[in-house]
Design a protein around this nucleic acid. Structure first.
Lengths: 159, 159
DNA sequence: TATTGTTATACTCTATAACTATA
DNA sequence: TATAGTTATAGAGTATAACAATA
């Protein structure tokens, strides 16, 4: 007797339910590596593209700059990345992975990939691609879909 | 120059990016109705299935019972649902929508459905179904995918 | 003993304003 | 003036322990 049939017609609701169901497992998978989702993501892009500045990372990952500071702090403190002054712009830092950071990322990546693969174990390859394509389309449509919502008449000012 | 190619191979990452991109728009869509995502969800299931107890709602929506209390409070204060003592069990409350609650939900539902439809405007119907099927498969696999992650050897005790 | 609703609390994630140092 | 990094802060969302009333 599932009573959320109305909600299940909404892509956004199914999206949220899937996301929260997955998040717990991702966190548990990363915990033994001393990583959270944000730190893992930052380590990933720094390993993939050494020399990025913090503002670049914030744009790539859609994380606000202030929220990145502590994340990068913890990666630096763990010895997995380094901050070095950018040549030609003494305001910016360039981020580089250490050798320990590279190897640690490789291990965490293997574990997370294995977990991630289990999430779609019930789907064939075409279905997985369709899922990712759909997610990317929704992500791209998100901001523009808001714009049309500007004029509303059923306004209520309750908490 | 997208530097999150590694991350984009993970269903979980694409899921999170889509979710956060959508969440903002959902909140903006619901705000004029005095609703947030949680209050909308609760109102939806109470309208769909009048007489549910709070513990039922928490199970259907996968929300912890303590976190439901304030949500239901605000819906009750707004006059959209009522708490009435369950017959035969004086511990529980049964939740019923008011007439105002039904009509208000209908309006919010129309707005949110319109927004939600725009999210998948670039996809054909088959692709939307594939997306939802994929999301539901991932949601179902989430908890069981964790279990296999129990034995780890690359342990690090950093923050 | 177990369950329903509740309170209190804590932790994470996210968002914004404002500061500093540089450009 | 504008930008990079930072600090402080506030707001959601989520999770757990513990209590009173009732079963």
């Amino acid at each position: 007797m599932s009573t959320d049939r109305d909600l299940r017609t909404l892509v956004g609701y199914n999206l949220q339910r899937a996301q929260t169901a997955v998040m717990t497992g991702v966190n548990k998978t990363l915990k033994p590596f001393g990583l959270r989702r944000a730190t893992y993501s930052v380590l990933s892009v720094v390993v993939e593209t050494p020399g990025l500045r913090q503002v670049d990372v914030s744009e790539v990952l859609a994380i606000e700059r202030p929220n990145l500071v502590q994340t990068i702090d913890s990666l630096e403190k763990a010895g997995w990345i380094t901050r070095s002054r950018a040549e030609g712009d003494r305001r910016a830092y360039e981020l580089y992975p250490t050798e320990a950071g590279r190897t640690h990322y490789a291990k965490a990546h293997a574990a997370l990939s294995a977990f991630d693969k289990r999430l779609t174990a019930a789907l064939d390859q075409a279905a997985v691609w369709a899922l990712i394509d759909g997610l990317n389309a929704v992500e791209a449509a998100g901001p523009s879909a808001e714009l049309a919502e500007d004029r509303r008449d059923d306004v209520v000012q309750t908490t």
